[in-house]
């Protein structure tokens, strides 16, 4: 796969939510844990599933499926908690995210990462840094800081109601549309 050394190759952890493959920069990932007992925090939004004990520290766990407007993550043998370090309003904080399964660590060259298309996506484009392509599969690179920015936490109800009527379990129908590429930032401004 390696074509050139001139550009920096990023390492990404891939995980699945439904049939979709997502990726996070490994520098943001602290560890991957098996599913454990989550203590629910009452009166919190549903996607904030609760807190777990990570070697003596209390770490909040969020359900990315709920966050993305899908159904609640059911616990299976493949379910994992991805513990990551995210930046909330300039403050670094540790958070666990539920994933249906965690796959592997891959390398992606910038040449293989494209900007997210403006339309034809069922994922909110502002959460996406780019689309990676590997073995004919598309990998969605998450802008995880943005997913959990405080504004987004406040908008939780909107996301939930907006996502409710999407056919959740269907495989992704996403098609890249190279001629419509625009910078991600521009789209967010819209």
């Amino acid at each position: 796969m390696k074509e050139t050394d001139a550009v920096e190759t990023g390492q990404y952890l891939t995980f699945k939510i439904g049939e979709e493959i997502f990726a996070l920069e490994v520098s943001q990932v602290r560890e991957v844990l098996d599913m454990s007992r989550i203590t629910r925090v009452p009166r919190a939004p549903d996607f904030m599933r609760g807190v777990i004990n990570v070697r003596g520290s209390v770490v909040p766990v969020v359900d990315l499926r709920l966050k993305f407007g899908l159904t609640r993550t059911e616990s299976t043998v493949d379910t994992r908690i991805v513990v990551m370090e995210i930046n909330l309003d300039g403050e670094s904080t540790v958070l666990g995210a539920l994933a249906d399964s965690v796959d592997e660590v891959i390398e992606l060259e910038p040449a293989h990462i494209e900007n997210p298309p403006r339309i034809g996506m069922r994922w909110r484009t502002e959460f996406i840094k780019g689309i990676g392509k590997r073995d004919d599969k598309f990998i969605i690179l998450l802008d995880i800081d943005r997913v959990f920015s405080t504004d987004e936490l406040a908008l939780v109800a909107d996301v939930e109601s907006a996502g409710a009527d999407i056919d959740l379990e269907a495989p992704s129908e996403f098609q890249p549309q190279p001629h419509q590429h625009k910078g991600a930032a521009e789209m967010i401004d819209r």
Binding site: V41, A44, V51, N53, V58, P60, V94, L95, F148
Partner: peptide, 27 residues
């Protein structure tokens, strides 16, 4: 006493968490 984490700071009625002897978290 352990802090609950930033994303729970607006939750009313819970001031923190603690870890019980069996390793589970209690509020």
């Amino acid at each position: 006493i352990k802090p609950l984490g930033r994303i729970y700071r607006d939750i009313q009625g819970v001031s923190g968490a603690t870890i019980l002897g069996d390793g589970s978290v209690s509020l």
